[in-house]
Simulated scan of single mutants.
Amino acid sequence: MKNIFAKIATIAATSTAFSVAIAAGANNPAQAVDFNFNWKGDAGYSAVGSFSYDEATAPTIISESGSGATNFLQSLNVSFLDPFNNLLGTYNTVSGGVSQSSFFTFNFDTSTQKLFGPLDVAGGTGVIGEYFFQGTIGDSLFLRQDVNQQGTSITLDQNSGSIQVSKVPEPASILGLVAFGMLGLGSTLKKKQASC
């Protein structure tokens, strides 16, 4: 009997903590929204990455290019994998609202949550052998590797321009679901206690 009361007290305390965390998140509306993206080439190479921006200030269309301070994008990173899922390289193309590559090109529609048009991420930092991902979404996208930092590169893989984008669930939504689940567990424990 004491065990059931201890569990209920723990659930109540956890639910209260989650409620406070959710309320704190609601009082800070200027938060970054995060998206993941992934691409698979015809030969089995892949790219996985993420990007973020402040949804309170971002326009419907986010277009970024070149090095230096970005207009709206706060971060963008990408990792490349070979057909055996071995990591080829990871690049933080945008970090802290600053692009590291003069070749950087990015277009995103915040209303449809889709990438579109020209894309060029990773590489571009002046290192021989670095990887980069470029092309036109809906037409063809290429994973390439630089050979000599003088415009020569080899194409490792490509596809018809298909790339998937998914929004990362907000922490408050996840906490809300956990709290709701805990309330259900508490109700189940109460019923179990009543039947004892």
Rank of each mutant, 00 (worst) to 15 (best):
N159Q: 06
A17P: 01
Q164G: 15
P29W: 02
G186T: 03
G135C: 05
S79K: 14
I128L: 05
M182Q: 10
P169Y: 13
V33N: 01
S101A: 14
T136Q: 01
K114M: 15
A17G: 05
S79V: 00
I4T: 08
L175P: 03
F180L: 14
F18L: 05
A69W: 05
A194R: 11
S52N: 14
N3W: 09
Q134S: 04
Q100G: 07
G97K: 13
T60Q: 11
D82V: 02
D157Y: 03
L177D: 14
V165L: 08
S63K: 15
Q149L: 13
T14C: 04
A47R: 13
G123L: 06
L143S: 05
T155F: 09
G186A: 03
P169T: 07
N92G: 02
F18R: 08
G161S: 09
S160K: 11
I61Q: 14
T105I: 06
K192H: 07
Q134C: 14
D82S: 09
G151D: 04
P118H: 05
S46G: 06
T152H: 10
V168M: 11
D109G: 03
W39M: 00
F142P: 08
I154T: 15
I8V: 13
N148Y: 07
Q149Y: 08
N107Y: 12
A26C: 00
V121L: 06
D54W: 06
A122N: 08
I22N: 00
T10K: 09
W39C: 03
G151R: 01
S95V: 10
